[in-house]
Design a protein around this nucleic acid. Structure first.
Length: 317
DNA sequence: ATGGACACCTGTGGGC
DNA sequence: TGCCCACAGGTGTCCA
């Protein structure tokens, strides 16, 4: 479900409530949400309870929370809780006692700096999402690991110890187009070397991150590119234009709180985002193209769907 | 390198 | 009403 705008909406919602909060207890309703945590459920709980959350950081669709463990419980490495929403994950902030949400898998109980109790409920229909604790390792480029909007950074503006670190399990994820250290030249150079179809490349989180099926279809529609157009066949200016569209679409979707079609995407308060009204291609099968009036087509592609205008997004070659 | 298939899962909606 | 099929915002891995 969630792509960068949805995950950023969640990050931005969690950060004010969880920064500097201390974990007090964890309820596990379904242990399958921990399949990516090597040590198993008991280890996850033992590490998390008592830990202080220093920030909520995001790169692409990955979220993490650097942890400060209580004195005397230093494992020798820097740790973070890493969350991924998969296709259907949600992280809701609830006050204790709020009606239990259907499909809740994990509840993290915490107490804020001000002594307020808060519950972060991890809801996940399909169980492709996960929570795990992972080692933080230095970023290869020595720059900040991800986006945290300044929350959790010390008041004197100095970077804190976790800033230029990234969870080992997300270290292969390249920067996303909204990252201030996003290296556009590097990405364009990479596109030039790839003979794969452009959509495949847009979805490859090891080239650039944050884009999923919705925003790939939207960016390709705006750029009038067919999903199978070889990436290397794009001219420099065309590649630049495509990335500009990607950036604009992601940024606009962030301001609208992401895309919601159903109960699967919600912000931390359980509210839907509004970007769905701005969609031009994704899920628009049979609807006239807003540019030329031709019906938008859906084709099976890579075990999912691709939506495009057959007239203004032709393969060129 | 690259493309494809599939595994991991549950739920919903359409057609009959 | 029930049953079967298609389909769903992701990622990782294995195989030709």
């Amino acid at each position: 479900m969630p792509e960068l705008p949805e995950v950023e909406t969640v990050r931005a919602g969690l950060a004010p409530a969880l920064t500097n909060a201390t974990v007090t207890a964890i309820d596990v309703l379904d242990a399958r949400s921990f399949k990516r945590h090597i040590g198993g459920v008991e280890d996850f709980i033992a590490t998390m309870v008592g830990a202080k959350i220093l920030a909520v950081v995001r790169r692409g669709k990955f979220l993490w929370m650097p942890l400060e463990l209580p004195a005397g419980r230093n494992p020798g490495h820097k740790l973070a809780m890493v969350g991924h929403l998969g296709m259907s994950g949600q992280m809701l902030l609830r006050t204790p006692g709020f009606t239990e949400d259907k499909l809740t898998r994990v509840v993290i109980h915490a107490i804020s700096e001000d002594g307020e109790k808060v519950e972060m409920r991890f809801i996940d229909q399909r169980l492709f999402g996960s929570l795990a604790i992972d080692d933080l390792v230095p970023t290869p480029d020595g720059l900040p690991g991800g986006f945290s909007n300044g929350l959790g950074v010390s008041s004197d503006g100095e970077s804190t110890w976790w800033r230029n670190l990234i969870p080992a399990s997300a270290a292969h994820i390249m920067r996303d187009p909204l990252d201030e250290d996003f290296d556009e030249k590097f990405v364009i150079a990479k596109l030039k070397k790839k003979n794969s179809g452009i959509k495949r490349v847009l979805l490859d989180q090891q080239t650039l991150s944050g884009i999923g099926n919705i925003y790939a279809d939207e960016a390709l529609w705006r750029s009038q590119l067919h999903y199978d157009q070889p990436a290397a066949s794009l001219t420099g200016p065309k590649a630049k234009e495509l990335l500009q569209h990607v950036r604009e679409i992601l940024a606009k979707a962030v301001t609208e709180g992401g895309t919601s079609f159903d109960e699967q995407y919600k912000n931390v308060n359980g509210e839907s985002g509004y970007f769905a009204v701005s969609l031009n291609a994704y899920g628009m099968t049979g609807i006239p193209c807003k540019r030329c009036g031709t019906q938008i087509k859906r084709e099976n592609w890579m075990n999912r769907g691709s939506h495009f205008c057959p007239k203004c997004q032709k393969l060129k070659g």
